[in-house]
């Protein structure tokens, strides 16, 4: 193939006259990806935990609400959810609220919408994993907790959840890795995260291979860090004798 390689382009100042190099663009994109991944992951853990617990409660309405949430958000394509949050939701709100949202600085809008879309979507998957973690416990544990005089909340807090969360650390690690890569969908609404910056780099320099190789390395580094982080969490929370370890 007839391709003109030029790695030096990364160190050139950008063509727009702003005081950056193209490598600087990639660095900004990387930071945006990291920030988006972390914020969305925290939201996903919070929402997913609430819904996951709700789906295992004795209360029928709580279970139905959890099921409805999972069915809705796990079954609609992520990119559609981004567009709905970004384009449709502000139009459904009362005009004053919608206009206020649309008047915010664009980058605030992109970031907030991306965290919401990504967090709520991934939350539905975390929910199912936590439910599986809780349901994998022997039924006797819940009954024993209640028989000891603990309230339902205390049973969850001190008996069920500590073991359930430890059980699902491996699938949660996968989920964390997936959310870091799903964050690339945010570029479709305009957030210049890592893949968005790569696209921009291609547009400006016409050097697609250099750009995408850099971006690939960026995601590899991020994913390596996540694997190490989750490995650290697993070791810190390890309880000898539990889960056959």
């Amino acid at each position: 193939m007839d391709y003109h390689w030029n790695w030096g382009v990364l160190l050139q100042p950008v063509a727009t006259g702003e005081p950056h190099t193209y490598l600087g663009w990639l660095a900004t994109g990387f930071m945006n990806t990291v920030a988006l991944t972390l914020c969305a992951w925290l939201l996903a853990l919070a929402v997913g935990s609430l819904a996951g617990i709700a789906r295992t409660l004795p209360n029928r309405f709580a279970r139905a609400a959890g099921t409805a949430y999972v069915s809705l958000f796990r079954n609609v394509p992520l990119i559609v959810q981004f567009f709905v949050w970004y384009f449709v939701v502000p139009e459904l709100l009362p005009a004053t609220a919608g206009d206020w949202i649309k008047g915010l600085p664009p980058y605030t809008q992109f970031f907030v919408v991306s965290v919401l879309a990504l967090g709520v979507y991934t939350g539905s998957r975390v929910c199912e994993q936590l439910r599986a973690g809780i349901e994998a416990l022997p039924k006797g544990q819940r009954n024993a907790g209640l028989a000891l005089g603990l309230t339902l909340g205390q049973t969850y807090r001190h008996v069920l959840l500590p073991v359930a969360y430890r059980t699902i650390i491996p699938p949660l690690t996968s989920e964390f890795l997936i959310i870091s890569k799903n964050s690339a969908v945010a570029s479709t609404i305009g957030l210049l995260e890592l893949s968005g910056q790569a696209r921009q780099l291609v547009d400006y320099t016409a050097q697609p291979y250099e750009s995408f190789i850099c971006v690939t390395l960026g995601y590899v580094v991020l994913n390596f860090l996540i694997i190490r982080l989750m490995g650290f969490v697993r070791n810190r929370t390890h309880v000898p004798g539990l889960l056959g370890q």
Binding site: T16, P106, G190, R199, Q200, D203, Y204
Partner: peptide, 26 residues
């Protein structure tokens, strides 16, 4: 995104310090 207008408006923003918010759409 990636059009010549994208380049021109960003340069204009940087040169004249016009404080614009620029959205690059797909």
């Amino acid at each position: 995104a990636g059009t010549t207008s994208d380049k021109i408006i960003r340069s204009l923003n940087a040169d004249k310090q016009m404080d614009m918010n620029i959205i690059s759409a797909k």
